[in-house]
Nucleic acid binder design. Structure first.
Lengths: 228, 228
DNA sequence: GGAATGGTGCCAGTTTCTGGCACCATTGGA
DNA sequence: TCCAATGGTGCCAGAAACTGGCACCATTCC
C-alpha cells in the first residue's frame, strides 16, 4: 500500500489517496483500520507533517497447513531446548500466534506430540559421517503413532547396514542435533530401542487398539522440549 | 465453524446453517469460498449424504510481526543447516508462505541477513557451563547492523569476566548450537573478533556511513545457512 | 492570519452481501 | 417406481457495508 515515499518514509494522506485512487476520507478510515490491526503509524499534524509507518510493526498474514505448523513448532522447540540463543523468545511468540489461530483440537494434538519430544547433546564419539536424508513427506505416517498411539511399522537399516522390519510402540522423539531418534518399545524384544530417523524408511501405521504409554527416562543432560 | 458433528465428522448443509444462524444459500456460498481458499471439503449427494472436512487441509492464519518472522526463519534455518532431520522441508514450506505475505523490501532484508548466517558444530572442549540468557528484545538492535551496515556498540563480558565496551562492524552470525557468535571486524584492533551472544549486553547502533563487507572465511565444517 | 496537514461526524449513493425461491442431479429407501 | 433427503446453481430483491463528498476542528509552520 505504502509505495510512494517522500523524505525518509514520510507520506501524506493526500499522496496516499492519489496513489491508491481512493478518497481522502477512505484513506483515513483505512489508516484507522490498520492501526486497529496493530500497525504503528505515527502522524504529525500541521504544515510539513505526514504519516510514517513503524517498520517494526509490519506484519504478514500466512495460511499454514497443520503439517507445516507442526514442522515449524518442532524446529523452534528443538532450537530452544538446545539452548537456542538469542531469538527463540520471539519465535515462540510467533508460534503462539499461529497456535491461537488453530482449532483447539489441533492444538491439543500438537501438545500431545510435543510432550513426546526430548532434546540433548550428541556424544562427540558418535560417527555421523553416513548421515542420510529423510523424506519430509514421511511425517504424516508418524502422526497417528503419537496422537492415537497406533503401532508403527518400518524398515530399519542398522549401523552395520543390515535391514530389518520393525513393529514398535513409539514413546518419544529424541533430538540430539544433528541426529533425530525415535524411542520406542519393541514388543518382540520386550524392551526399549532407539532408531535413528535417517535410517528409517517406509513407515506406516498399524491398525489395532492404542498401545499404552510407558515411562521413558533419559540421562540428566536430556531435557523435555516442553518443561514439566 | 464446524462444531456440531454427526457420525464421524460428517455434517449436512442444513445443520451448518442452523448452527451458524445463516441461510442454506449463504452456507453453500461460504463452502465455495472455503474450497477456493484451499480447504478440502468432501461432499456426498443424495439421501444420507453430507459434508466432511479433510483435517489435513486445516490451515491457520496468523499475523506475525517482522521480528517474529525473523526469529522463526533463523530457528528453522539453523535447524536445517545443522542437519535438521526430518521435518525441515515442511518448515521451509511454511516459512515460504509467510515470506510471500511480506512486503518485498522486507523479504530482501531477511535475505540480506540470512546471507550473514553460518552454522557449524561446537568443538566438544568448549565450556558452556556458564551459558547465559540473552534478552530477545535486543534483536531489533542487530537489524540495522546487518541491513544498513551500521556499526554496533555493546558491552562484552569475556571468558574471564572482564567487561569492555566494543564498537565493531558486524560481518556474520555464527551458530554453533547451543552457542551463537557475532563475527565482526574490530577497527580499533584492526582484525576479526568473535563474540558470544550471551555475553553481549546493551547493543546499540552507531550513526555513521555504512561500513564495507569483508570476506569472512570459516573452517570447512562451518556451512552458510543459505547455500551459495 | 493563512495554508498545509491529520482527524471526526454526517449523509447520500454505490457496492457487496444475504436470504429466499425455483430448480437440477444424485442417492437410498418405501 | 416414486419420494424424500441431500449437495449445488442461478436469479433477484432487500439488507448491510463500504465509499466519497462535505463541513468542520486542532495543530503547525511561514
Amino acid at each position: 500500500m505504502v509505495r510512494h515515499m517522500r523524505r525518509n518514509g514520510i507520506v501524506t494522506v493526500a499522496e496516499l489517496a492519489r496513489e491508491v485512487g481512493a478518497s481522502r476520507r477512505t484513506v483515513l478510515r483505512d489508516l484507522g483500520a490498520l492501526r486497529d490491526a496493530g500497525f504503528v503509524i505515527d502522524s504529525e499534524p500541521g504544515r510539513g507533517g505526514g504519516l510514517q509507518l513503524d517498520p517494526r510493526s509490519v506484519q504478514a498474514t500466512a495460511r499454514l497447513s497443520v503439517s507445516e505448523i507442526f514442522a515449524l513448532l518442532i524446529s523452534v522447540a528443538s532450537v530452544r531446548a538446545a539452548g537456542g540463543l538469542p531469538f527463540s523468545g520471539l519465535a515462540d511468540a510467533g508460534l503462539a500466534k499461529i497456535e491461537q489461530a488453530l482449532p483447539s483440537e489441533k492444538v491439543r494434538d500438537l501438545r500431545l506430540f510435543l510432550d513426546c519430544l526430548y532434546v540433548g547433546r550428541l556424544a562427540p564419539e558418535v560417527d555421523i559421517s553416513d548421515m542420510g536424508e529423510m523424506d519430509p513427506e514421511l511425517l504424516p505416517a508418524f502422526e497417528p503413532a503419537f496422537l492415537q498411539r497406533m503401532r508403527l511399522r518400518f524398515r530399519y537399516r542398522d549401523a552395520k547396514g543390515a535391514v530389518t522390519c520393525r513393529d514398535v510402540e513409539p514413546q518419544a522423539m529424541l533430538i540430539l542435533p544433528p541426529l533425530w531418534y525415535l524411542v520406542a518399545w519393541d514388543p518382540s524384544r520386550d524392551g526399549f530401542r532407539h532408531f535413528r530417523m535417517d535410517r528409517i524408511s517406509a513407515p506406516e501405521s498399524v491398525a489395532g487398539p492404542p498401545f499404552r504409554r510407558r515411562r521413558v527416562t533419559f540421562k540428566d543432560d536430556v531435557q523435555p522440549v516442553r518443561p514439566r
